[in-house]
């Protein structure tokens, strides 16, 4: 009788100890791999950001993180555009413009874009850092015919579906309206942020 009542108890103990051991050893191994890969992953991330910054502002030779804390920008159509970072682009000691990293929500999640803005508030260049748009459809925002339209435009860019774009208008991609509108929202938000930064610099 004594052994009968004892058995389930020891069984549960055995189950939990074995499972804990397996989980513990697995956790240790994962931690070891993480220790090896974490610096490399961080370095790659920084390198990628640095490359993208350089790509949108080729004339700058250094970038200074301004520690932006203004929060999300609400776009003209009422959607929130998160701002991930703002950098002042400097050539020597002179500020030539700024770079804003935005992540508007596209069709398949956040599209991370770095926008270079010149000192007079115009788009210098854009660079998509990461996105998960539909392959072959939403990914068309990577085509120069689309993102090239933004160069030289200033805050409040409007998107049109057809016809010839006017001075501050761009043509969205038919069939990929969500992705291309998200890109447009991102660029506009970046321009809004840049306006406040550039304005503050001049004062």
């Amino acid at each position: 009788m004594a052994s009968l009542s004892k058995k389930p108890k020891s069984d549960i103990l055995r189950l939990s100890v074995t499972l804990c051991l397996i989980a513990g050893i697995t956790a240790l191994l994962v931690a070891a791999v993480n220790a090896v890969t974490a610096p490399e992953i961080a370095r790659r991330g920084e390198l990628k950001t640095a490359q993208s910054l350089k790509a949108v502002m080729p004339e700058a030779d250094s970038f200074e993180d301004c520690g932006y804390s203004g929060g999300d920008i609400t776009s003209a159509d009422g959607k929130q555009v998160p701002i991930d970072g703002v950098w002042l682009a400097k050539s020597g000691n002179e500020t030539v413009g700024c770079c804003v990293k935005v992540s508007p929500k596209g069709y398949g999640g956040a599209i991370e874009i770095i926008v270079g803005v010149t000192g007079d508030g115009k788009v210098a260049a854009t660079q998509i850092v990461s996105m998960s748009e539909t392959s072959g459809i939403g990914t068309k925002i990577q085509n120069p015919e689309f993102y090239g339209q933004f160069v030289g435009k200033s805050a409040g860019i409007a998107g049109i579906k057809g016809g010839t774009p006017l001075k501050n208008e761009v043509q969205t991609i038919s069939g990929a309206t969500k992705s291309s509108s998200a890109f447009l929202r991102g660029v506009n938000a970046a321009l809004t942020v840049a306006e406040s930064i550039n304005g503050g610099e001049q004062k």
């Binding site: 697995t26 191994l29 994962v30 791999v33 890969t37 992953i41």
Partner: peptide
Amino acid sequence: GFVTMIDLLMQAF
């Protein structure tokens, strides 16, 4: 455990 390891390794390399 193994999936997390390969995920980290792929992210790094």
